[in-house]
Nucleic acid binder design. Sequence first.
DNA 1: ACAAATTCGAGAGCACTGCTCTTGACTCGA
DNA 2: TCGAGTCAAGAGCAGTGCTCTCGAATTTGT
Lengths: 246, 246
Amino acid sequence: MLSNLCTDLATGRLSRMPAHRTARERARAELTAAIKDEARRQCGERGADGLSLRAVARELGMVSSALYRYFPSRDDLLTALIIDAYNDMGAAVEQAAEQHEHPRERWRGACHGLRTWARTHPHEYSLLYGTPIPGYQAPQDTVSAARRVPAVLLAAVSDGWKAGEVEAPFAAPELSPLLREQIGVVGTALAPGVPEEVLARTMIAWSQLFGMVGFERTGHFVGSVDPADEFFTYAVEQMTLFVGLS
Amino acid sequence: MLSNLCTDLATGRLSRMPAHRTARERARAELTAAIKDEARRQCGERGADGLSLRAVARELGMVSSALYRYFPSRDDLLTALIIDAYNDMGAAVEQAAEQHEHPRERWRGACHGLRTWARTHPHEYSLLYGTPIPGYQAPQDTVSAARRVPAVLLAAVSDGWKAGEVEAPFAAPELSPLLREQIGVVGTALAPGVPEEVLARTMIAWSQLFGMVGFERTGHFVGSVDPADEFFTYAVEQMTLFVGLS
DNA sequence: ACAAATTCGAGAGCACTGCTCTTGACTCGA
DNA sequence: TCGAGTCAAGAGCAGTGCTCTCGAATTTGT
């Protein structure tokens, strides 16, 4: 029973749990949070590679083996950090979009919100979009959290479409049947009623956004458009037009 | 003197060196290559994280300390692998582009060539575009090798422009003075005579391409457009239009 | 209220890792 | 030929993830 609680705590779904009855549960919840906090701190300083269970335990004044009572392995601790990071990023992008009313402004806000979050949380961004951990299989909890950002982008386009404000800037090639079906699944889930052509453009812009943010983070703009503030703004403007949010 | 040779060997500039006079130099060159080969093999199996100097030495039948005569640290060995990977990727993309005559076809060939290389060399791709190594500063040798792919893309657009085959698909926002200057530097070096507006679109498409390839590699398309063959082809087609290679 | 079940921290220990230092043998060029 | 330069090897240091055991503390069931 407590092993279930442990899992839930590790995956950040603490809020759904009832209040901790016993002192033991309370202590466990607090220690779990403290471990994650310290791990997040170390990740932020030395990157995910520099996350050491022994160092975390040392900093918390306990022995390394005791830490395994809370996270069965280093990967599990990293998974908890990944889910937290996805949710933190998703919340930041959602909030950035919600500060505007007009769909086009919400789109712009989401894009700039993502970049801001990536710049203020570089190691967490790399944790999510950098080199995948070998043999690591993302649990189901991560995919729903990971979808929050594309959901915001699709919502902006969907709202724009409903308001009749989405117009293709140039003729698009025909979508293949398979691609139309793949994108249709996404559309019915997150943006029902929006044509697949518009959704396809949105997904292209989505990957462009993360490609650009990743390039800036990994230094691939150094020597060309770094500092990338103005290039980023320009690219967002172009992709806003590209998806048809005229 | 030989320390210089060591550095050159480590950075892959062996070809510029004269033939090895002594047996010692010959043996050193061969062992250096063997170390890199084995390291590349291990990187391909377990990722850059799983690269162990001791394991490389063990596989080569030598003692780990002996390896430090050839690469002063693990990071130096990784740097050598990075430069090799950049050049391998650049050569693959160049070859993919050179198989076509028309600029638009060269562009498409380069895009698909990059994806093919990334799919056949996933760990090397992550080494180049994944999580940056903390504290790692890319030496000058890497940046020239890293520019080979964007150079191919810019050359295709430049050739298309010279042939009068580049046409903006929709009106672009005005470029800021700083951005115009940043992009101008790139243009004079790699695509002289091409307007900054076109270069800016090319750099947006460049980041879109790598964002898409990275998403596919890290599994962020799973649940939507994975397998990504058709989406990739469609996106390349759209970005071909976007840069104006009509 | 008391015993059984569970959970806990601590410690020892295993098999690794990157890296340093020393030692003795080898090779090469003057 | 002989000294300078280079080499592989070994021991050793400090660190890592992880497992196991062992008492002590706590919770739970009766």
